[in-house]
Design a protein around this nucleic acid. Sequence first.
DNA 1: CCAAGCCTACCGACTGGTAGGTAGGTCTTT
DNA 2: AAAGACCTACCTACCAGTCGGTAGGCTTGG
Lengths: 205, 205
Amino acid sequence: MVPQAPPAAADTKILILHAAQRRFADHGYEGTSLNDIADDVGIRRPSILHHFPSKEAIYRSVLAQLVGDWSELVTKAVADPTTGWVQVERVLSAAFEFFENHTDFVRLARREAIDGGPFFDEIATALQPLFDQAVGFLEREMRAGRLRKHNAAQLLLSGYGAILSYFSDAPLITVLLGTDPLSPAALKVRRREVVELFRTALEPR
Amino acid sequence: MVPQAPPAAADTKILILHAAQRRFADHGYEGTSLNDIADDVGIRRPSILHHFPSKEAIYRSVLAQLVGDWSELVTKAVADPTTGWVQVERVLSAAFEFFENHTDFVRLARREAIDGGPFFDEIATALQPLFDQAVGFLEREMRAGRLRKHNAAQLLLSGYGAILSYFSDAPLITVLLGTDPLSPAALKVRRREVVELFRTALEPR
DNA sequence: CCAAGCCTACCGACTGGTAGGTAGGTCTTT
DNA sequence: AAAGACCTACCTACCAGTCGGTAGGCTTGG
């Protein structure tokens, strides 16, 4: 027989995670109630707690999933590494594309970064090795003369801010620019501009 | 007697606003209860509602105050305007210093920017003319050849992101850098780096 | 005397979470 | 094949606690 025994079994769990991810990204942890999530899924609140032990567990699960996706992408982008600006642009572009397709992640991560909440430590310590790795790479390339000398960590923070903010603050930027900043055309412009800014700063003259 | 009669009369209102600003910045609108604010001030919740008609009114009041401060600073920084990079650096430095002393503002504004909440429109429309003004200045100077040509709006967004994120995401950055990013020494380094990045991009060779 | 400022006591709405029950499928035993 | 045991997925009903907000009383200085 088809192993269809639990037809919605694993399904429902995934549906809950999806709905929760959206809600948490849109309205934050406090701003999201289990009823909200249940409504999205189309079941009752207690049924949610049949699949997860608590609201906090759902949140943790969402975070772990997203951080995992992000780590995987970075790992992939630095496999088969080249050197100098080529490698920087590769990572920059990979990150940009990832954020394009994971705007929930951006907003959620940003909320965590701002309030340093109870779950914050876990994701911070998950991100730290990636950051250190990137700093190491930049410093090595700068020493080798393949990139202009800068404070690598600071430059990285600037890139982090310039890229992430564009996605996380999309509502505000919509008003400022008067157009949808997440439209394909707008994203193309944005990507070009960011890459250009860092190329100017990093590529040896 | 000591003139303690209305010791907290007008004072209390200000104390409430101060406490509310901190709480809202730390934990967001949903994450802050009137009891939290009342406890900070040292009175009971209903007493707060004697001074303000509602929680929302308090929040609006906090926002208006901060946006006002920010507008004032920008206005001051562009009075007696010069041209080219000198003027850019002046605004950049002024903004940096303002954020240093108004970290509450940064975190609050960021929260608003992320969720585009109910109060969001007001602050967005308050910020828009400042943004347009800046874009206008940059484009004029680029056309005049006093700044290198860029997409002015995009460059502004990059600066916005690079500076604001450093302050708003201080909890995360603390972990990434392993030191306090808001210490005087760290701030000096940060300011130099940001200014340098934009000087490289904007100053004509 | 009166008003400002603060209080206690209360309200209805909503929160996360629990208790207990039901429908229906699968697995095991006879 | 039939029957009972067990399981998952979901439900309704309820809990204690907290939320923002209101009503009304007490105190105190002008």
